Simulated scan of single mutants.
Amino acid sequence: MNQIVTFGEVIMRLSPERNKKFIQSNRLEFYFGGTEVNVGISIANFGGEVKHISCISDDFVGDTAISYLRKFGVDTSSTVRSKLPLGIYFLEVGAVMRPNSISYNRSHSSFSEIKPEMVDWNASLKNCKWFHWTGITPALCEGGYHTLKEGLVLAKKKGIEVSADPTYRSGLWKYGADPKETLSDLLNYSTIFIGGVNEMNEVLGSDYGDSNEDFIEAGKLLLKKFPSIKKIFDKIRTPINASWHKIRSRMWNGDEFRETTDFDITHIVDRIGTGDAYAAGLIYGLLNFDDFKAMEFGAAASALKHTYEGDVNFSSVNEVMNILEGNTSGRFNR
């Protein structure tokens, strides 16, 4: 059992070249991504054995998406197909004081057809040692919620480590489910919480602030409400402007608080998927290092993702370790 399993929508991103607005351009670049996909591909780039489960359009676009996943060694054998089109989103990449702008078109995507009977969880989790989910999937559709829950119930029975990134996007919850109740239900089957005070406030109904003290207090309440969760990890982003951010990580495990130093990102190429890069780096780190080294690895992986166009972090373990060793000058590798 050595496979990391991710479950969620595969989505296509369309963007004008460089930092143009749509009105400035008649050329678009496309990338494949999706929160859980980004995590899976990044872990595969670190050398992990990854399976991604989804429902993808049964057309040439879906064929291309599956080929993209397989290019990185991601197992797609449990992915099913649909006659509905792949979900897409449109992104204008900001710069300096102009922020990114996103518009989604995913309400009637192929993934919206996903239902529990379409996934054989016994087969899908046969070789699984780690299962990762995010709050995007139960937000998209009722079938996504029920299918995910079925997988989580089985994962808990099997004693599989389960990381939860309960990312809350208010604009995605359109089918009538209560986000707090739904995410709380799924957290009962999870062991690692990847999220900050905002995510904890959403499931706790609290209003803690962003300070370390509030993070710890919220963490204490979260661990009490969800006894299966053992550790909480958070990525802290400090924006100077749209092109310059700082990234660090912090943790609460019920007994100890730890925090890393900042990684300074002075020129952002693309910040989409940087939270996913953190989650992937953290998961890889927790499987291979101690907690603090895992936090550092996740933060460094997130920082490096800001240097790549597209949704995915293409960094290797050696490249992340190079950053951790303080080699941040960007000098040529010869």
Rank of each mutant, 00 (worst) to 15 (best):
L221M: 14
Q3R: 08
K149C: 10
D120S: 07
K231Q: 11
I66T: 11
D291G: 04
A300W: 01
D210I: 12
F72A: 07
N100P: 02
H267D: 14
I236L: 15
G326K: 05
N313K: 07
V269G: 09
G73W: 02
I136V: 05
N322L: 10
S112L: 10
V203T: 05
G330A: 11
G310E: 00
E17M: 08
S211E: 03
P116A: 08
D165W: 00
T6C: 10
N122Q: 12
K235N: 11
P116G: 06
F22M: 02
S190V: 03
S110F: 08
S67H: 09
L282E: 14
I4P: 04
E217A: 15
K225A: 05
I236G: 07
V74Q: 00
N212D: 15
P239I: 04
T64P: 04
E113Q: 14
G281N: 10
T261G: 08
T191K: 03
K156V: 00
I53D: 02
E117F: 12
P138A: 01
R18S: 15
R248A: 12
S315A: 10
H108Y: 15
E325W: 00
W130G: 01
A294S: 12
N327F: 10
D276K: 11
E213G: 08
W133L: 02
F46N: 06
N318M: 02
H108F: 09
D264E: 15
G330R: 09
N122F: 06
N127D: 15
I232W: 07
A139G: 01
V39M: 02
F30G: 00
N198E: 02
H52M: 01
L186A: 01
S124W: 00
D120K: 00
A95H: 12
N2M: 12
V153D: 02
A218G: 09
F60T: 11
T261A: 03
I265W: 12
R237C: 04
L222E: 07
K231E: 14
E181H: 08
L86D: 04
S124A: 09
R98Q: 09
E49A: 07
F289N: 04
L282H: 11
K21D: 11
A300S: 04
V317G: 02
N45Q: 13
D178C: 14
T147G: 01
E142G: 14
N288P: 02
T261K: 13
L222F: 07
R18T: 14
G310H: 10
V320A: 07
E213R: 09
A164R: 06
I11W: 09
I236E: 11
A218R: 07
H306Y: 05
L140I: 03
E325M: 03
R258A: 01
Y145E: 04
N2V: 09
V312W: 09
G40C: 10
F193P: 00
Y278K: 12
W252V: 00
Y89P: 08
G275I: 10
F46L: 02
V10F: 04
R250M: 06
Y308H: 15
Y31E: 06
L221K: 15
L86N: 12
Y89C: 06
F60C: 07
S163Y: 02
G176K: 13
T191D: 08
L324S: 05
L282Q: 13
Y89F: 14
P239D: 13
E259V: 13
L140W: 00
D264L: 13
K157F: 14
H132S: 00
Y208A: 05
I247W: 05
K305V: 01
A123P: 05
N45C: 09
A95K: 13
N201V: 09
A177H: 07
G285V: 00
N313E: 02
A277F: 03
N2L: 10
